[in-house]
Every structure is written in C-alpha cells, then in structure tokens.
Design a protein around this nucleic acid. Structure first.
Length: 838
DNA sequence: CAGTGAGCGAGCTTCCGCTTGACTT
C-alpha cells in the first residue's frame, strides 16, 4: 500500500517521479495553481490589511476533491511544487485547502528530475516558507489592484472592454513608442563609395579586390568631386593586418530564446513554439519548456560531453557553465534541453522533430569549443587624399560549435583575399558611388517583443505567449505583413575613363509578420502615461520586484508594502475618474468644402472612425470606419474625405442589373463587405465579405456582384444541394449539413461542382480513416479520432473524450451510452455556473 | 458574426501566473 503522497505541479513530472520512487510513494499533480482571488470587490479586503479572498478555480474542483481523497489515504504528504515564489504559494494553497497539518506534511524541493536528486529532496524536507508565500500574495494583490482599477478607468474614459495591466500595458507602450519613432523617421541618404582594384599577388597572378572607402559622402556632388579628384591617382597597399577572431556558442535555451530562434529559423509564432514544445515535454523528450534558467545539471553536462566526444572528438568539447543575466529570473528549472541527448531525433510530426532538433543542436553547441577565424584587413592608400579604401577577409580556421549550430545573423561568409605586399601598386578599375538611405528601427515581431520584455524583467516564461495573444485579442495590436514601397536612388559609375550617372529603383520597408499597434493602443498608451506614469515606467516591475524580494527575506511586511503603493495609486485613480477628459484621440482635420461641416477622427465604440459634422448639427453626423491603412495620428483631410466617400453609405459601385438596387462596398464591424440595398429599404440589405486580397478602393461592380452571389448553389450531389460560401473561417462548401473548407487555390466564386465533390470526398475519406467503430443499432453514436487525434465517442455533434480507455474498438453501444451519460453529467458540473438575469 | 457610432444607463468587460485540457463548420 502506498502511504506517502507527493504533490507536484505538472502531471508529466508526476509520472516521471513516480517511476523513481517505487510503490511506497504516490505522486499526484495539482495542475498549477488551485485557487485564485474572487472577482467581486477585487477579491481583496482593502480595509483589513488587504486580506485576499480566494476561491478554488472552477476547473480545479475535481482535482482538489481527488487530492483530498488521496490525503485521507496517506500517512505522509510531501508538497513538491517548484522552488520559486509561485511554487511556494501553490504549496501553501494546497496546505490550506486540503487542511493539512504539521504532523504529517512537509515541503520538499528539487530542480533536477533524477533519482538521486529526488531521493535527496525526500530525505531533506522543510516547512513552508511563509515569507516567500507572502511575497507571492503581494505580487498577486498588486496585479489585481492595478489591473482591475486601471481597466475600469479605461472603460470610463476611453472605450468599454479595454484592459490594462502591469505587463500588457508596458508591452503595448513598447510597440507604440517604436511605431511613433518609425512614423517620425526621415531617411537620410549618403553615398557609399566602393572600388575594384587589380593587383599582382606574390605568385605573379593578377587578382581583383573589392574595397570600400573609409568615408561616405553626404551628397552626389561630393561623391563626384571625389571621383574626379582621385580617379587618376596612384593607389598603393597601405597596410595588411592579420588578426585571429573567435566566436563562442550561445547558452542553452530558455523559454524566451527558444521562442526567438524558433521564430527566426522555423518561422513559428510564439504560441506554436510553446504548443509544440509542450508535446515534446509530455512525451518525455525534453525538459520543462517554461524556464528562465540557462543552467544544465551535472548529469546532463556529463552526457552531453560523452555525446560530443563520441560524435566530434575531444577538440570540439569545452565545458561551459552559464549564468542568467536576466532581471528577476527565478530559476526553478533547468534550461530547455533533450532529456536523452543521445536521441538524435524525436517527435511525432515534422514540427516536433524540427523543434527537437533545434533544441538538441543548441544544447550540444553550448558545450562545444569556439569557432576560430583569421581576419585580414587590407588598406589601400590614395596618393592625393587622406581617405583610404579597405577590405576585410575572413577565413574559418576551425568550425567548433558551428559544426552543429549557426548563430544569429546566419552563416558567416568566407572571404579570401589575395596575398599582397605593403607598398605595392594596385590598379584602379572601377569606382561606384551608390546612394544609400538610413533605415528606421525594425518593428517588433512576437519573439523580439518577448525578448525585450524579458530584458526589462517584465512577465514570466509562462506568460510571454499569452501576453502576446492578449494584446492582440484586445485590439491593441495586429500582426500583419506590409508591402514595401518603391523609391529611386542614384548610382554613379566610373570605369576609369568617364563618369556616368544612373537612376535606379529599389523596394524598401516591406514587413513580414510584424506587430503593429492600433489607434486604440496609441490613445490608451497616451492616456495611461499621462495619468499613471509610475506604472507605465519600464522600471516599475523591477522596482516592485525588489520589494517582493525584501518580503521574501522577511525584511518587509507584505500588506504594508501594498498599502504604501495603494494609497497614492488610489488617489490618482479617483482623481483621474473625476478630472481627466475623455480621451478618444479626437483630432479635427478641417472642414468639408461641400457642406461646410467639421471633419474629425476619433476612437468610436467599435474602433477608429471619421466623423462629418457634430451632434448639435441639425443633420445627423455621418460616420465612417477607418481601415488599418490609415492612422488617426497621421490621416489628413483629403484622406479622411476619401474614407467618408468610400464608407458610411459605402462607395457606390453601381446598380444590380437584375433588381436595380444599389450596390455599395464599405468597412463593416468585422471587415470589408459589399452590400446590396440600404438599411432603410423595404427589402433587407444583403451582405457579403470581401475575399482576401480585395481592396475597398479597388473592387469593381462585377467583382461585387460575384461576391453577392454567395452563398452559391453549385449543383446537386447525392441528391443534396452543394453550396459554396464565405464564413468566419474563410471559404467553405456545405453539403448534407457538413462543412468542407476550400483550399487556398480554390476560388469560391468559380469553383466547379466536380472540384467541390473531390474536396467533399477527400474530407469524407479523412473522416472515414478516423472512425474507429460505428453501431448499426444506433447510427447517431460513433467512436472516432477527433481533429486532435484523441479517441472520442460522438453523439449529436457532442464529443466525449475517452482517451483513457484501452481497446475502444471493443466498446459496446450500451457501454458507450453509459459513458456519455456519465460524462455529460461531469462536464456540466465543470462549467462555472452563470447568474441568469432577465 | 454583422450592417453600429451622440448621450442616457443596465449590465457586461478587466489583471498576472501556475498548469493542462476542451475545443468546431
């Protein structure tokens, strides 16, 4: 009989540990936090030393009940949540909720999941550290107060349903500040001078070298003057300097650096990286993927060493210990590494295999020797000018860690230079002066924003990906591509005889999967910065973290720290609600020359709008949504007029030849639509979303008419209608009340019945493969593999997960119905009960 | 999914961190 209970945070961890400890120990998981602050009144009794009021999370009730049973059957309980602030708090919440007592309950910690480490932890139990728990409570209470109070201010002063918080508001501010820098950026051009020389090397062979001048010129005239002055000058080798250079590997992965590299090398968004890593973790292939530690355990370092020696030899090995430089790191885990470094490949699909390989290579590289280069700089003298040309050659002498891992910036180019002598004459063959423009700072990607937040010590590994999602879901940020623009630049060529000038074109400023702040983000950031500058300060988190540390060290009482913060904060909140103007980013652009009415832009109830006229006008004002191509801050009167003409009632495309009703195209709440008729018409207007790539100001009447034909009957199949339409998730086929998505290459306006049937059959084939068992007696019940590969019973479109059942193909109908009965009861209880209101 | 936008007001929204399910067209 097992009589010892160990509770950890993660079920995957529980499984591993149970194997190490034998049958006297049962290892269970709490699945993270089990309690949270209630929502009512902030869940905090502000007048009573900020006493928190907790409730068991709705989806943890079952787990808590289960743990309660286990506790009853155990003689000793070991709380083994992570060794950090949050982990200590989880242990304490378990203690409180499970009504544990000092007699049989201890706290243990380990940061390596190996048999000796766990045995050692079990042998050295301690008590819960209440100071550490209190520092977590302070963190939690502060975040709740800041988050809920600030959000409520925004609802009143900007727009309903907005949100603000210690982490997200700063993340948005980073994007807004960068965007403004970019908007204000004025590219400056200069002239880069390059020259090609012919030189006789020490073997007597003639070689070419491409060099660059030590200075760029501010304008075309200076560049031309320089060429005129030095085109016929004597050029000689001024110096040749050789220097060894080296490059060290990067530390093994943390959550943040894994997200960077998966984004850069595999093109994964951060959420995908975490999802794929989670799969590898659950399968036991990698260590925990939410960590800020770059530490490798002794054991794993030993294994990595063996692997390197075996695969590459002694020359490639170098023992390295890494230290985190990140502010506020808590290091409850190891770095992310393969559990068994010997496994060269792991994972069930391509994404998992690629991510595993990336993790493995990075881990191995982190214990390998430096890459070594030889760098040579040759400088060329100009007889009648103090400027000089130079060229850098680089040759890889020893690849070291580069054998398995290329570092940021991609492959280093090998440049060989001819062997020359100092003082020798070289012959000028060609000079090019090319106009170059300065570039603005890059926009953030998901991954680079995470890196910046980590650098500032804001947010935690478990929240980086969710934070990036939140700011997108709240409408503060959109991730998108932007096409580049064309511009002209000047290229002056001198071929040792005469100068020629060319005008050339280049594309610049193209963006791929970048984060763009919306108008709402700009208005909210300004509002919060004006009124709550301390919280918007990039150092706010780092400063409060210092105080949390003091609480953990027993040097500060947590509610006194909160009180000191809250007194000022609360006053400021009240003051802002009372005195601050509504901030909707309102900007008056000018007057409409036709009607004489005022035109302005601002944030409306549903997003940015242009407004013609003010409410006091007799005639109602006209409103028009602003598309993402324009910004409230930069749109001008002419563009606003364009938006008004294109919207409100929409841009009139023409009349429907069939019905004679007018057809408009405009922006609606969820994107661009074409519309037949108006709201006031007797006949109701009909709408159709625009296809991807269609632009409101480009679409023609013909295209609009085509769109309005959707949903489109394409014919009959098996005596049932086949209908094509565009839905929330893109174009689809509906047949026999089943949905099939169209492929990228299919056009819903033209797709044929034949093609539709092929797609329907493909879908059926795929579904058929997933059917495990059907019942003749009752065709509504099936056992299938669902979209995510889990075994389920399905009845009336409801799915009942039975992944824990072995041999599902042997289930009888009776048994299935019993399972459905049981589970529908279970799932209904799980859902949080909602108050019904009339 | 839906075709709004003033202002009024009811009733809603919202935070950060720790975990994994559940999930639909």
């Amino acid at each position: 009989m097992s009589s010892n209970l160990i509770i950890v945070e993660s079920p995957a961890k529980a499984k591993t540990i149970e194997k190490f400890l034998g049958k006297d120990y049962k290892v269970k998981s709490s699945f993270g936090h089990i309690r949270n602050l209630v929502k009512k009144n902030f869940g905090i009794d502000i007048d009573n030393n900020y006493k928190p009021k907790y409730e068991v999370l709705a989806d943890k009730r079952e787990i808590v009940a289960e743990l309660r049973d286990e506790v009853k059957n155990s003689t000793s309980i070991l709380l083994a949540s992570d060794e950090d602030r949050e982990g200590e708090a989880i242990a304490w919440h378990l203690w409180e909720v499970l009504k544990l007592n000092k007699k049989n309950t201890k706290r243990i910690v380990f940061n390596e999941i190996t048999k000796p480490a766990i045995k050692k932890a079990v042998a050295n139990p301690r008590n819960i550290n209440l100071d550490l728990v209190n520092s977590q409570q302070a963190r939690r209470v502060l975040d709740r107060l800041v988050g809920f109070k600030l959000s409520a201010v925004l609802w009143k002063k900007v727009k309903s349903k907005l949100s603000a918080g210690r982490v997200q508001s700063v993340a948005v501010k980073l994007l807004v500040e960068r965007e403004r820098e970019i908007i204000d950026f004025k590219p400056v051009s200069s002239y880069k001078i390059t020259a090609i020389f012919e030189a006789v090397d020490i073997n007597g062979d003639v070689k070419k070298i491409e060099t660059e001048l030590s200075k760029r010129f501010d304008n075309e005239q200076e560049a031309v003057d320089f060429i005129n002055k030095t085109g016929k000058s004597l050029h000689t080798v001024k110096s040749i300097v050789k220097k060894p250079a080296k490059k060290s590997p990067s530390p093994p992965f943390t959550t943040s650096s894994l997200q960077q590299e998966a984004s850069r090398k595999l093109n994964f968004p951060v959420l995908k990286t975490m999802r794929v890593a989670q799969k590898l973790y659950e399968a036991g292939k990698i260590t925990y993927m939410r960590t800020d530690s770059v530490n490798l355990s002794e054991t794993s370092q030993k294994n990595i060493k063996e692997e390197i020696l075996k695969e590459f030899g002694n020359k490639y090995y170098k023992k390295r210990n890494y230290k985190t430089k990140v502010k506020g790191a808590q290091e409850a885990h190891e770095a992310i590494r393969p559990t068994y470094i010997k496994n060269k490949s792991a994972g069930k699909d391509n994404d998992e295999r690629r991510l595993y390989e990336l993790i493995r290579n990075r881990t191995i590289a982190s214990q390998m020797s430096n890459a070594e280069f030889e760098r040579t700089v040759i400088k060329i003298n100009i007889s009648n000018n103090e400027l000089y040309y130079s060229v850098v050659g680089e040759v890889l002498i020893f690849d070291g860690f580069l054998r398995v891992y290329s570092y940021a910036g991609g492959e280093r180019k090998t440049v060989f230079l001819p062997k020359l002598k100092v003082g020798q004459k070289v012959d000028l063959e060609q000079i090019d002066a090319i106009e170059k423009f300065t570039k603005h700072q890059p926009r953030y990607t998901e991954a680079s924003l995470v890196r910046k937040l980590e650098e500032l010590g804001i947010g935690r590994p478990s929240t980086y990906a969710p934070t990036i999602s939140t700011i997108q879901n709240r409408g503060y940020v959109i991730k998108e591509n932007r096409e580049g623009q064309e511009r002209e630049y000047i290229h002056i060529k001198y071929n040792n005889v005469k100068i020629k000038k060319y005008k050339k074109k280049e594309i610049f400023g193209a963006e791929k999967s970048k984060l763009f702040p919306t108008d709402v983000a700009m208005v909210v950031t300004d509002f919060l910065s004006d009124n709550f500058n301390n919280i918007m300060n990039y150092n706010f988190t780092a400063d409060v973290e210092k105080e949390f540390d003091d609480i953990a060290d027993g040097k500060l009482v947590w509610y006194e720290m909160i009180d000191k913060f809250y007194k000022d904060f609360h006053t400021k909140v009240e003051d802002t609600i009372k005195n601050a103007d509504r901030n909707t980013g309102e900007r008056i652009l000018g007057k409409d020359s036709k009607t004489g009415k005022q035109i302005m832009v601002r944030i409306g109830k549903y997003g940015p709008i242009v407004q013609l006229g003010v409410p006091e006008d007799k005639d109602k004002p006209i409103f028009a949504s602003i598309s993402k191509e324009y910004h409230i801050e930069t749109i001008n009167l002419k563009e606003a007029l364009g938006v008004l003409n294109n919207s409100s009632n929409g841009r009139l495309l023409g009349k429907d030849p069939k019905t004679g009703r007018e057809i408009y195209v405009r922006f609606a709440r969820y994107g661009a639509v074409v519309q037949i008729g108006k709201a006031g018409d007797k006949e109701k207007p009909k709408f159709a979303s625009l296809l991807k790539g269609m632009k409101i100001d480009k679409i023609t009447l013909e295209e609009a008419l085509e769109l309005l034909k959707l949903p489109r009957d394409v014919g009959m199949y098996e005596s049932k209608k086949v209908v094509v339409a565009i839905g929330r998730y893109g174009p689809y086929i509906r047949h026999d009340s089943k949905f099939t998505s169209l492929k990228k290459e299919d056009n819903p306006l033209t797709v044929s019945l034949e093609r539709a049937i092929i797609l329907i059959e493909q879908k059926r084939e795929k579904d058929r493969k997933n059917i495990i068992k059907e019942f003749k007696e009752d065709e509504t019940v099936k056992i299938i593999k669902d979209r995510w590969g889990r075994t389920c019973i399905v009845q009336n479109k409801k799915y009942y997960n039975i992944k824990d059942i072995k041999n599902p193909e042997k289930l009888t109908l009776k048994k299935c119905l019993a399972l459905i009965e049981k589970m529908s009861g279970g799932t209904n209880n799980k859902k949080p009960t909602r108050k019904k209101k009339k």
